[in-house]
């Protein structure tokens, strides 16, 4: 069974919202290896989507295509009404509206925490420095570490670094946030502090796509769970439906291995 549109099987209220990300049969090859095989899905505004799947299933590749860190070779991706093509202006526009958080944090090690966060407002939005730094302090407050502003990334714990990375992505005031395994590189006791920040974002109405292995987070926060394997969307649905009554054999196998 193939999903022409993975939005099927979610609530009517959600279906009534505007589309914000539309992927239509997206294909992506690395040489001869096909990483994405006709991925189609529509994400609604203020929706939280958790993407699950075994490693190598194409989850990360997919969300990296959405802000064009990877180029898809065929199919269409439309983000907030703008199609991702080779037009550099579209790419810049989309990147400034889509925030991204990485597994390895990827903070800039030569800049202090406050400079990490204010870099993009300063040089992309061309805000005055004072305003950019005030914005950065507000965001640090929001992720709960205002006292670390003058420190350098190397002086922070993994959880603090990831929260700074979230603040850095939020500094561009994005409408969409992409999370690429945000807690996979963290020690277990730090995972909660990052997930708490993400939950707060979700409650605040941010559109989020999250690749994660945190089933608790998926159950509690997600509006929809999408399961991928071998570059295809195998199954999608609400968390209750997905975790209690999976339809596909591959989904059942995956859940039996991790739960």
């Amino acid at each position: 069974m193939s999903f022409s549109d993975a939005t099927a099987a979610v609530s009517d209220e959600l279906a009534a919202r505007d589309d914000i990300i539309i992927c239509d049969s997206v294909d992506k090859w690395y040489g001869d290896f096909q990483a994405l095989k006709g991925v189609s899905a529509t994400i609604k505004e203020r929706e939280v989507v958790v993407v699950l799947g075994p490693s190598g299933s194409g989850k990360s590749t997919w969300i990296r295509c959405i802000n064009r860190l990877e180029q898809h070779q065929s199919g269409r991706i439309i983000v907030d009404g703008v199609e991702l093509t080779n037009d550099t202006r579209n790419i810049e526009k989309i990147r400034s509206e889509v925030g991204m958080v990485f597994q390895q944090f990827n903070l800039f090690p030569h800049l202090s925490v406050i400079d990490n966060i204010s870099l993009a407002p300063l040089w992309v939005r061309k805000r005055p420095r004072a305003e950019a730094e005030r914005l950065a302090s507000d965001l640090l407050e929001r992720v709960g570490i205002p006292e670390q502003a003058e420190k350098f990334p190397g002086q922070l714990s993994g959880g603090q670094q990831q929260r700074v990375a979230i603040a850095r992505a939020l500094a561009m005031e994005p409408r969409i946030m992409l999370f690429d395994e945000p807690t996979s590189a963290l020690d277990p006791e730090m995972i909660k502090e990052v997930l708490d920040v993400m939950k707060e974002l979700a409650v605040g109405g941010m559109t989020m796509m999250v690749v994660t292995h945190e089933m608790g987070f998926a159950r509690e926060v997600a509006d929809r769970v999408i399961f991928m394997e071998s570059g295809e969307i195998v199954e999608a649905g609400t968390p209750e439906h997905f975790f209690t009554d999976p339809q596909e054999d591959r989904t059942k196998l995956f859940l039996s291995q991790i739960l």
Binding site: R95, S96, H110, L119, W123, V124, M172
Partner: peptide, 24 residues
């Protein structure tokens, strides 16, 4: 990852080179 993070927050390539890549 530094390049990806810089591009993801919307920096142009020239700004990224000047502010992120070259200092490191």
């Amino acid at each position: 990852g530094q390049t990806e993070a810089a591009l993801a927050v919307g920096l142009r390539r020239s700004t990224m080179l000047r502010r992120v890549i070259l200092p490191q």
